[in-house]
Design a protein around this nucleic acid. Structure first.
Length: 987
RNA sequence: UGGCCCGUAGCUCAGUUGGUUAGAGCGCAUGCCUGAUAAGCGUGAGGUCGGCAGUUCGAGUCUGCCCGGGCCAACCA
């Protein structure tokens, strides 16, 4: 029974200690347990409780950009929705009423396409199905995916109005979208223009790029002369104003010649004037003709033209050639217009002649340079109108004189109903040859766009479209253009990160007029009637109301029902006098209008405000939703629908590469949830710099999992100790030991830092701040030091009660601060101490932290104390390496201090307790040379020494006093006192 | 090809108006503890700050070029 030298205790006092006591599991089991919390929140309807609780608070509205309702969610969706949830939840906890209404984009091509695919699989044809029926199938398809995505989003822990979301296809929405369109029309911002689109003659429909596949095709290729009409000097060997020269172009689509309106050249290419010296009799390119060609391509062109000898007369700057004649000039008295030369970057001298035949109705490059040259054309007195040379059936129209309906034998055709090449090319070539406009012809095999469905070639074809003016004065107000409104709106919008502002501004500054129309079925129709005689859009509020009311009751299908035109026009107009537009709206108009049918619908969503506090999407949405919403709202409201815009990057793989199925480096949110849990995914989002592209891979997830574990364990220890806390033992800050006061000071500092970071949407700062605090200051310092007091001190101990009180404050703050991020774990932690049906960490605000906890002087003083501590623990490490000690409690070092600042700081402090040694002696003199020192802590030296006395069997400290208490001879006096108190309390 | 953005230890991130030997957490290695224990504490090793050139007394920070990566440039959302 007698303890000897080492004082090794035989009695096990652990039952007499206040050891951590908790059922909170060390391992989270998130994948299994998270669904339970979700069910709990749903059962208590926590979203409604939040609204009720916050009903008198200022509104904060993060407006959901609608994902497209097809397919499962991917990691990008998860990132986006999680960020929105972080914003929404933190704003709620900062004292706002932060409602979140999720939405879905439901109209559009991809869904339409899926339905068509199903038809194809069943051998049916879309064109045989009534439009209303087809639209109904699209609707059902979208509904199914809304349900799937809703469950996937909820599983991420996203809190929102899931049972009352918005859908762009709801009748309400369709009605409001039509109203918005009619607002744009009525205010004179809508006009009908035209634009070349990919057109399938076989299917009689416009096609999207996604519906196009490329295949080799053999095309006719022709070289054509455009006689120079007039020009300036600048040629070395003399003026060419009156010389009989032609610009030579090259094209693989001879049928577009009637649509030619310009020739493009490049000022970066060298051109020359050439004369033919020798050529075969009867050759198209005959002796004496003069051609203008890119120097690099002249020889090749002459070879194709069978020219045997030619001479270069001199340099030519095509910029000085004002105009050319059209090569079909005079055919059926048509083509009398002048053909200008335009300088364009898309022109190269790799192939062809260095001149590009430009038919603005049949190519995007052509169209763009044409539209961009409107001012130049006006200066030259040339009409900028784009002709409709080819009809939807592939036949030439009256805009192609001599080849269209006026031609002998009827109009020529580009492509027939079976997708075969028509007679257009041959007839054009014949007409050109007849007018001596041909230089050469040939054939070429090249890649050409085909319809994905019919596998037949498509053509670029000018098609009537509806546009919104960017630069026309709205309602006659001088300078009040849509572009101007948008640029102003951008200036008063806050961007996170700030670079987004420039990006959006540059896009708005550059963008052409908004093309609203799509030749599609699944969308909101452009609810416009055009007077057949005057071509004017009907502007009648009564008609407009009739349309909107019908849409609200029956959906936009009303537009497609029999007799719809007369129904909407009413008695005042005759349906026969009006063209009812069959195009649907660009889906960007739908989603661009969400602010109108969601934020302003106070009946349905009373907790939302307009304009929204924030729009938050991926950086691609500068061109997308941010852009279209700004367009729509500026057109109809004159200002932005948002006060701020937050953008995030894209999710890359672990190496920073784009995720793609072909690289098989994709990470599915569903897999992460299944394996690790949604809180891990959320912690990844919060830890990342979302302003750039985010990386996600195995190693990164493991890092996140590790830091989650560490954090969880610290909270678990907190919970275990707080099991012994009783609120009636709470200690006021001013009565606490300095160590506790320092912790409270840190809490007060963090309170400001955390709130500021949340207000700035800087989540990674919060994660860094809190993990550093918890790891360095709590786990490795405060908790480590206070274990002794918490476990061993007597029941009555002020130190222990103070520590428990501090732990309670820590608990309150940390659980709240982390709640928006670790929504499941913080609920679990919170309920461990505050169970109850109505209890939830998510019904809390960030706690009020008393400002008087701040104590900078004390904190500075403890910086000095911690510096001394570092020297002590450093010296202990040497002893440990030398195997002289194991536990730090075996040591009782000597600390030499001369610096009065350190001495003052340590005055009244128990350095042994702070350094977790059994004893420490401080000597106010220079330490011996062999003493342990740290480079960055001048004036502190430590000499090792073994602790004296026996080891206390309860606290494991080694103290001379152990053995002096006759009643408890194997423990220290403090522990003896603790045991007496326990006995007295009947424990 | 154009517009915008990014590139600091194995990972996630700090690095103030250019100013000493570039920092943190985690991971890794290693020692201790065994009353937070599939935990806790200590110590240590890791970086030509994407590359090159320039401005400067001085550059991770400013400029140019190059390399690598991303978003946008769609009748895709």
């Amino acid at each position: 029974m007698t303890d000897t030298v080492t004082g090794a205790a035989k009695t096990d006092y652990s039952a007499t200690l206040f050891l951590p006591k908790t059922d909170f599991p060390m391992r989270a089991g998130l994948p299994q347990r998270e669904p339970d919390w979700l069910k709990r929140w749903e059962d208590m309807d926590i979203y409604a409780l939040q609204r009720e609780q916050a009903k008198d608070r200022p509104l904060f509205t993060i407006h959901d950009g609608p994902p497209y309702a097809n397919g499962n969610i991917h990691i990008g969706h998860a990132l986006n929705k999680t960020l929105k949830d972080l914003v929404s939840r933190s704003m709620q906890m900062l004292g706002f009423n932060s409602a979140y209404v999720p939405g879905w984009d439901c109209h559009g091509l991809p869904i339409e396409w899926k339905i068509e695919e199903q038809y194809r699989a069943k051998g049916k044809d879309k064109n045989d199905i009534p439009v209303v029926e087809f639209r109904q199938e699209c609707r059902t398809f979208a509904e199914q995916w809304v349900d799937v995505q809703r469950e996937e989003f909820k599983r991420l822990g996203i809190l929102g109005e899931w049972d009352n979301p918005y859908l762009t296809m709801s009748f309400d929405a369709e009605a409001q979208i039509a109203r918005e369109l009619m607002k744009v029309a009525t205010s004179g911002q809508l006009y009908r223009g035209s634009k070349p689109v990919m057109w399938s003659v076989v299917e009689r429909t416009a096609l999207a790029e996604a519906e196009i596949e490329y295949a080799d095709i053999e095309s006719d290729i022709i070289w054509v002369k455009f006689p120079v009409h007039s020009g300036g000097g600048d040629i070395k060997s003399g003026a060419f104003r009156d010389l009989n020269a032609s610009v030579v172009i090259w094209t693989t689509t001879p049928w577009t010649i009637p649509a030619n309106r310009a020739i493009s050249f490049s000022s970066k290419i060298a051109y020359g004037l050439y004369e033919i010296i020798k050529a075969p009799e009867g050759n198209w390119a005959s002796v004496g003709e003069k051609y203008i060609l890119a120097d690099k391509l002249a020889a090749e062109t002459f070879a194709k033209a069978k020219v045997e000898e030619f001479v270069r007369i001199g340099d030519i700057d095509p910029g000085h050639i004002t105009l050319c004649f059209h090569p079909l000039r005079g055919l059926s008295n048509g083509y009398q217009f002048a053909v200008p030369l335009l300088d364009g970057d898309h022109v190269t001298d790799d192939i062809g002649t260095g001149f590009v035949h430009t038919a603005p109705g049949h190519g995007l490059d052509d169209f763009e340079i044409w539209i961009n040259s409107i001012r130049l054309l006006a200066d030259k007195g040339i009409s900028s109108e784009v002709p409709y040379v080819v009809g939807d059936d592939g036949f030439y129209t009256k805009d192609a004189p001599g080849l269209g309906p006026d031609a002998e034998g009827g109009p020529a055709r580009v492509i027939d109903d079976n997708g075969k090449k028509g007679d257009a090319n041959n007839r054009v070539i014949a007409a050109l040859a007849e007018r001596n406009a041909m230089v050469a012809r040939g054939r070429v095999k090249h890649s050409y766009p085909h319809s994905w469905r019919s596998k037949k070639p498509v053509i670029f074809r000018n098609t009537p479209q509806w546009f919104v003016y960017m630069d026309r004065d709205i309602m006659g107000a001088a300078g009040d253009t849509l572009r101007h409104r948008m640029l102003n709106a951008i200036d008063v919008t806050k961007f996170y990160p700030p670079a987004g502002q420039n990006r959006l501004r540059a896009m708005i500054a550059d963008r052409p007029d908004w093309v609203l129309s799509r030749q599609r079925a699944w969308g909101v129709p452009i609810t416009v009637f055009v007077n057949k005689a005057t071509k004017e859009i009907l502007k009648d509020e009564v008609v407009n109301h009739r349309i909107a009311d019908a849409f609200k009751a029956e959906g936009a299908d009303a537009w497609y029902k029999d007799g719809a035109a007369q129904r909407f026009l009413g008695d005042a107009y005759k349906a026969d006098d009006y063209e009812m537009i069959r195009d649907v709206l660009d889906v960007w108009f739908d989603s661009g209008s969400t602010h109108a049918f969601v934020l302003r619908n106070k009946q349905k969503w009373p907790h939302l405000k307009f304009p929204a506090s924030m729009y938050l999407e991926g950086s691609d949405q500068h061109r997308g939703w941010f852009h279209s919403s700004l367009l729509e709202s500026c057109a109809t409201n004159g200002h932005a629908p948002y006060e701020s815009v937050l953008t995030h990057g894209f999710t890359m793989d672990g190496e920073g590469r784009k995720m793609s199925k072909s690289l098989s480096n994709t990470v599915a949110p569903q897999d992460i949830i299944k394996q690790y849990g949604a809180d891990i995914l959320r912690l990844w989002v919060a830890s990342s710099d979302y302003s750039e592209d985010l990386r996600l891979g195995k190693e990164i997830i493991q890092t996140i999992v590790d830091s989650y574990r560490k954090l969880r364990n610290s909270l678990r220890w907190l919970l275990g100790n707080l099991a012994h806390y009783d609120a009636k033992d709470a200690v006021n800050a001013k009565d606490m030991p300095e160590l506790e006061q320092v912790i409270l000071h840190r809490l007060a500092q963090l309170d400001t830092q955390v709130r500021t970071a949340y207000k700035e949407y800087d989540y990674r700062k919060i994660v860094t701040l809190l993990t550093n605090f918890m790891n360095i200051e709590l786990s490795a310092f405060y908790f480590d030091i206070r274990k002794d007091a918490l476990y061993c001190e007597p029941i009555s101990s002020l130190k222990r009660k103070s520590a428990l009180t501090a732990l309670n404050h820590l608990f309150d703050c940390l659980t709240a601060w982390l709640a928006p991020i670790l929504v499941f774990t913080m609920e679990e932690v919170w309920l461990e101490r505050h169970p109850g049906d109505g209890s939830s960490v998510h019904l809390r605000l960030f706690p009020e932290v008393p400002a008087h906890w701040l104590n900078a002087d004390l904190a500075a003083k403890w910086q000095l104390i911690r510096a001394v501590r570092r020297v002590v623990t450093g010296s202990l490490e040497i002893e440990r390496c030398e195997k002289r000690i194991g536990s730090s409690l075996e040591a009782a070092p000597k600390v030499f201090i001369v610096d009065p600042r350190y001495l003052a700081a340590l005055d009244g402090q128990d350095l042994a307790e702070i350094a977790i040694t059994s004893a420490i002696s401080i000597e106010t003199r220079e330490g011996p040379a062999e003493a342990f020192r740290l480079d960055d802590v001048a004036g502190i030296a430590v000499m090792p020494a073994m602790a004296q006395g026996k080891r206390c069997a309860r606290s494991w400290k080694m103290l001379p006093e152990v053995g002096t208490d006759p009643e408890y001879p194997d423990v220290s006096l403090r522990d003896a006192q603790a045991l007496r108190e326990r006995a007295a309390a009947g424990l």
